[in-house]
Amino acid sequence: MSFIGEIIEITIRSVTISLSATILSSLWSIPLSLIIARSRSRMTKALMGVLNSLIGFPTVLVGLFLYIIFSSSGPLGGLGILYTPFAIMIGEALLITPLLISLSYEIFSKAYYEYWETSITLGATPAQAFMKLITERFEDIIVVLLIGFSRAIGELGVALMVGGNIRGFTRVFTTTIALEVSKGNFDIALFLGFILLIIVSTTSAIIRIMGGRKSD
């Protein structure tokens, strides 16, 4: 495959994997953050403290932890997902979970929590109240997801450890950059870094525009 073809392929793969990871993570992170926001228990504060400190957890340790689990001799070895895009997806989804929970908790714990209470008292089922809350804070949630996406696409540790940087299969931006640096191909690495920068900065531009928007 040509050089440009390979870079396009890596771009598509990186974005797809990280986007899927973000969506996957949101499936549990957002409901969890709502549960935490609703809880009146003192444990909640302690839990949020732990989660906040996990945001900066070294990605390579998350990768190592998942490697041990997904390895053929590990507890989930039978699934055979080590060194597949799924593994990266799951790894990144877990990696950004503390970040997503922490950021969505900020959204839910403030005045916005009233939307939940209002829906419930107006007769909504928990599911209906959840939908209402998501609808009301939709822009904020998208912003949170985009931040999660930026983190996912820019991380190296997980992608390398459980993805294996396999050409044409699990090779993503960050692993390619690392490889090209070790090959001494600094120009290619810089070029890839530039594309990554464009993707991440476009994402954050969207975040800024949406974050600056006053909801009606």
Binding site: A111, E114, E117, K132, D216
Partner: peptide, 19 residues
């Protein structure tokens, strides 16, 4: 609970309206 809760409705001091 849902059936019983629907018998009571609460309006906040500073209520929120939806979009």
């Amino acid at each position: 609970k849902l059936i019983m809760r629907r018998k009571i409705v609460y309006v906040h001091e500073n209520p929120v309206l939806f979009k």
